[in-house]
Amino acid sequence: MVIVVGTPLVMGLRYSLHRVFLYDFNNQVFVGLENYWKAFADPLFVNALRITGLFTLGCVVLSVGFGILIAFLLNARQVKLRPMWMALFLIPFVMTPVVGGIAWRFFIWQQEFGVVNQISSYFGGGMPFWLLERDTALYATIITNSWHLIPLAVLVFYAALTTIPDELHEAGRVDGAGPFQALWYIVLPILRPHILFVSIIIITSAFREFDMIWALTGGGPGRSTTVLSIFAYNRGIANQDMGMANTIAFSMFLIMAVIAWLYITLYRRTLGDKA
């Protein structure tokens, strides 16, 4: 396990400390932390960091929010054919992100024939180029990626909801709580550790997302959806600068490690509080 996880990490770290170009791969020169200084001094790296942060935050909010809502609705007594609904909601999650991205690009966001603009024009709205406008492209990618991730949240939250004893809901009803009061006062406090768990999974997924964004926008227009993984790809493959690409990738690893450590600490405390 140490070898499997450690080898790419060590190699990534090593390359990040060297000047390595794909076109001259055998000529590797040790440059210390120079690549890191260069990266953090580059406004485009800082921009990619900002875009990645916004993208990740957006995906977490949408996925957790809709995940809880859908799981809560699915768990309602009135819902029939529950396995069918579950299976339906899981489809986006089992779809390859790049296929999902292409499908959304051509069928949902497409300017002339896309579903969104068809609905918009039906109600007399405009027909924007969602993926070509700097103001909307990032939102569109967040929504599309959340569509892919929401089923994961639904699955976890639904499983958690089924463990809440009926007596608690009964007691809530006796006290006059409506469905949303029950969600707020009964369900959410119980789901807290699950929310933290789902959040960390979604954060790690969204933070390194590449395929979906690549299929949707390729990182554009301009740099408006260039997240760190795309920035690293551009440096490493397009520019053949593997030293800088590994610097970006290793920086991503460090950022993610810190966030994961904070989350796990918080998760343990939450479990501790619960116990």
Partner: peptide, 23 residues
């Protein structure tokens, strides 16, 4: 060997950043 990195992708980055207004 450096053509792709310095010229082609240099052009890509230059015109992309100017066209989009990122720089």
């Amino acid at each position: 060997p450096e053509y792709g990195a310095v010229m082609w992708n240099g052009t890509t980055e230059f015109i992309t950043d100017v066209f989009s207004g990122d720089l």
